[in-house]
Amino acid sequence: MVFVRREQWDAHYAGGGRFRELGPAERRLLAEHVPAPAGGLALDIGCGLGELARHLAGSGYRVDAVDWSEAALTQARRTDTAGLTYRRLDIERNDLDRLPHPAYDLITVRLGWAFVRDRTRVLNRLRERLRPGGALCVITPVADAVPDERRGIALDEREIALLRTGWTSADRHDADGLALLVLRGPSPTAPEYAGKSRPSPHALTGAGVVVTDRAGRVLLGWSVRGVWELPGGKNDADEDFAAAAVRELEEETSLKADPVEARVRAILMDSVHGIPRVTAAVRVSAFTGEPLVAEPRLIRRWEWHDLDDLPLLGEPLFTPSAHVLDVMWPGLLPGLPPVHRYPVADG
Rank of each mutant, 00 (worst) to 15 (best):
M1P: 13
V2C: 08
H12G: 04
Y13M: 01
A14G: 15
G16T: 01
R20W: 08
L22P: 08
P24M: 06
P24D: 03
R28S: 08
L30Q: 10
L30G: 08
H33D: 08
L41W: 08
G48Y: 05
R54C: 04
H55V: 10
L56R: 09
G58M: 01
G60W: 01
A65G: 07
A65E: 09
V66M: 04
D67E: 07
L73Q: 03
D90T: 09
R98Y: 07
L99R: 05
A103N: 00
W113M: 05
W113E: 07
N124H: 15
L126V: 03
R129E: 05
V138T: 01
I139V: 15
P141N: 09
R151N: 07
R151Y: 07
A154L: 02
D156N: 15
E159G: 02
E159K: 13
L162T: 05
R164V: 10
D176R: 13
L183E: 03
L183G: 03
P186I: 05
A190L: 14
A190P: 09
Y193K: 08
Y193T: 14
V209N: 01
V209S: 06
R225P: 02
G226V: 02
V227T: 15
E229Y: 00
E229V: 02
K234M: 14
D240R: 11
A243M: 03
T253V: 09
L255W: 11
E261M: 11
A262V: 09
A266Q: 13
I267N: 13
D270H: 14
D270F: 05
H273T: 07
P276M: 02
V282C: 04
S285G: 07
G289L: 07
L292H: 14
R301K: 14
W304N: 04
D306Q: 10
L307E: 13
D308G: 09
D309W: 00
P316F: 06
F318I: 00
F318Q: 14
S321T: 10
M328S: 02
L332N: 06
P338I: 06
V339C: 13
